[in-house]
């Protein structure tokens, strides 16, 4: 936020200060879905949401998609104890609509929206990439059964149970199986060649990293049924004991 000149006389002082605000990043504009998701969230910890100012982030909505119904959204947020103060990101047209509903337009803060030079000049220690900072690993503690598919779209998949024959594990990042890996395991499905697969007992039908795959038949029998890690070396999958 910008620095304003300090007023020395008059009934108030106007200062430019930074405050920490909660950000509600909209992924959907459907009012009922937002309302029910919000109700569920607030129910978990009502105290956390009492009179909390929030900024509505429009950056994740499709550029040419429908705009949220801002007056309705404001009412919904207020009903749940939140105080919407403004919006940020999103296309100009959406921001205009927000402004009409009495919301402020906050300047963009994310590095991915700043021009490269400006980002360098600002000299802030930002995460190396937006994609990296959004990584979420997924934890599964029940056996993954035949016919089931688990997909960790944003990061690693951690399974604290066995994976059955006929099951499928997919992850953008690494796959960790603290149990027997008996189905298929595909790590780095978005092309991350550094992704690896770890398991307590390798009995998989097929393993793949970043699109390079191997059938169990092609894996050294000495390495089957024991703890291993699998990584990609150039174009080759390399399996080694743990």
């Amino acid at each position: 936020m910008s620095t304003a000149p300090k007023e020395t006389t008059g009934p108030f002082e106007l200062k430019g200060e930074m405050s920490l605000l909660s950000v509600l990043r909209l992924l959907d504009v459907e009012p009922r879905r937002i309302a029910s998701a919000l109700a569920a969230k607030v129910k978990q910890s009502p105290a956390l949401f009492r009179n909390v100012p929030v900024v509505i982030d429009l950056g994740a909505l499709p550029q040419d998609g429908a705009a949220p119904d801002f007056p309705h959204l404001v009412t919904t947020l207020r009903e749940h104890g939140l105080i919407p103060v403004g919006v940020r990101h999103g296309p100009r047209a959406m921001q205009d609509l927000a402004e009409m509903a009495g919301l402020a337009i906050l300047p963009a803060s994310s590095p991915r929206r700043m021009p490269r030079q400006e980002q360098e000049r600002s000299g802030k220690a930002e995460e190396p990439s937006a994609a990296r900072s959004q990584r979420h690993s997924q934890l599964v503690d029940k056996p993954v059964r035949s016919g089931q598919q688990i997909y960790a779209a944003d990061g690693d998949l951690v399974l604290v149970a066995p994976a059955s024959p006929g099951s499928e594990l997919l992850a953008a990042g690494c796959i960790h199986v603290y149990g027997a890996l008996r189905g298929r395991a595909l790590a780095g499905v978005n092309g991350d060649t550094l992704a690896r697969i770890f398991c307590f007992s390798l009995e998989a039908e097929l393993v793949a990293i970043a699109g390079r795959y191997q059938l169990i038949e092609d894996i050294d029998p000495e390495l089957r049924n024991r703890p291993v890690q699998i990584r990609l070396d150039g174009d080759q999958l390399v399996t080694s004991p743990l």
């Binding site: 059964r145 035949s146 016919g147 089931q148 059955s164």
Partner: peptide, 13 residues
Amino acid sequence: VRDSDRILGILQS
């Protein structure tokens, strides 16, 4: 056993 495994998955979902 394979089919039972499948059924267990369906029961869970």
